[in-house]
Amino acid sequence: MITETYALFGRAMKKLLRSPVTIFFSLFMPLVWITLFGQLFSKFAEMPGFPTKSYMDFFTAGVVVMTVLTSAFQSGLSIVLDMDSGFLDKLLVAPINRLSILMGRLLTDGVRIIIQASIIIAVALLMGAHIKTGFLGYLMMIIIAACFGIAWAGLSNIIAIATKNSEVTMMAGMLLTFPILFMSSALMPINLQPKWMETVAKANPASYIVDGIRSLMVSATFDWALIAKAFIVIIVVALFSISGSIIMLRRVNH
């Protein structure tokens, strides 16, 4: 299973590196957000009750999660391509574990997200954001982002395998990313949101990822409670999305 996963990860990585432009497709909107909206909303930080002095310090984690959601939601496209070309059948007749087909894909998404999130964080730093926990904090931010991306990419694969349709897979990502983002703690602290949105945001897994990543930027030391919450959310999402994808993959063709 490890050999198989590694072989398929190698295949997907080669494809990614041979068309690196795909790395930048899903990076476009987050870059627009961090450069324009970061400026536009900068006065938010002056509101009473706002947790940070600078909006950029607050906003960066939100844009990192936006990048992760956008990127992870594209994961399913590859499997639709493999279904259309018949390549998936070639994998399915081989005596390999179905999980390795999925993991080869998801690990590549993880690498892509590490590159993308690093670019976003670098731009944020240039725009005046600070990471109070330093380089180790940056590493932890990237790890949380990549793990959440892997878990979330599983959802895209469920949609992809169920619909076998690249347009639907793509649209689902585009339509869901913004509501998930707006109804979380990504753009506005939960305590400053209307009551009903606060309730939704508390139930939104993205909020916990944002809070975990943000804590590494704004607290002087690692806030293990928030980091642990982020990982618990990641594990729950991953269990659901990966087992769901495997069930779908086993039923494909039947």
């Binding site: 070309s85 018949g86 059948d89 007749v93 081989a94």
Partner: peptide, 28 residues
């Protein structure tokens, strides 16, 4: 078993040899 479908199933982004190595790895 070996199997080839009616549609040609090779990864066109990879070279011939890379396609072969990928399959070899999948069959350990």
């Amino acid at each position: 078993i070996g199997y080839t479908a009616q549609d040609i199933e090779v990864d066109e982004d990879l070279t011939g040899r890379e396609n072969m190595i990928l399959s070899s790895r999948l069959y350990h």
